[in-house]
Design a protein around this nucleic acid. Structure first.
Lengths: 132, 132
DNA sequence: TTCATCTATATGCAAACTGCACCTAGATGA
DNA sequence: TCATCTAGGTGCAGTTTGCATATAGATGAA
């Protein structure tokens, strides 16, 4: 039965860190509601210093989370500056964060299996594993 | 000066595990030459048991590595079965593997900063961090 | 007043990645 | 003859991503 494709991201989490910003945003929102611009700045805490996130990516991820009902949003009139779209984590979003954490733990295991293979390999053939 | 985009994967490594199969293949080839079909099977060692890699992905990554001169290939007449395209790591590919390892170590640090933030957070607000 | 700048959100586009379906083709054995 | 395994590959559509750019309120300087 061809033409069966449906795939899509749906909620793949995909065993690799593709949308790693997503769990970071969820975690930040777990601490309380916030808006995109502020979240963007608070992402530095996770080590995105070089290679900082692009704002368009942040806004798009937040919208996508909202479409899947993992966050809710409301407009907040700023006491200064333009209005902000303030996001809050939903119960479903909290559950989704747990899913992400378990997925990232698995990713961590895979990553360490790679390191272990690498070190093991470099120990045997003690090739140019330093070169500096 | 608009129209300046060039981006592309080139050699981004991108601070997230996008093309994680790439370093795995490089590491496997570091142990000696091999062909796509065999590499596909040997990838299980890295923990791709569930969610195994798609063969088309493997073949495409190998071709892309060859285009960038990180591997070389030759046709080998099989003593059994159809001919195989056998890949071997080049010196440049060896260097590229080192780059990948350093990049993945950085990814690992970021990942652990996330876990640490998460655990810290769950300790404070001891919310439903279990739910099973 | 005008203008630059900061804050804040958002869209358009092209390049890149990925998974599924599908194709070719040699070898092998029933 | 035919199904199956081995081996490599393409086409396509869905999705992600980074850059450029647009919009617009607020703020302070000239």
């Amino acid at each position: 039965m061809p033409g069966r494709r449906r795939r899509g991201a749906e909620n793949r989490c995909s065993r690799r860190i593709n949308r790693f910003l997503e769990p970071c945003l969820l975690l930040l929102l777990h601490g309380g509601e916030s808006h995109g611009y502020e979240l963007l700045e608070r992402l530095g805490k996770f080590g995105f210093n070089e290679n900082p996130a692009d704002s368009s990516t942040i806004y798009r991820i937040l919208r996508s989370l909202e479409e899947r009902d993992f966050v809710t949003s409301r407009w907040a009139e700023g006491d200064s500056g333009p209005a902000r779209r303030v996001y809050a984590l939903s119960p479903a979003g909290d559950g989704y964060l747990q899913v992400w954490v378990r997925d990232l733990e698995e990713t961590d295991r895979i990553l360490h299996r790679f390191f272990s293979e690498y070190q093991n390999h470099m120990k045997l053939h003690h090739s140019n594993g330093k070169k500096t």
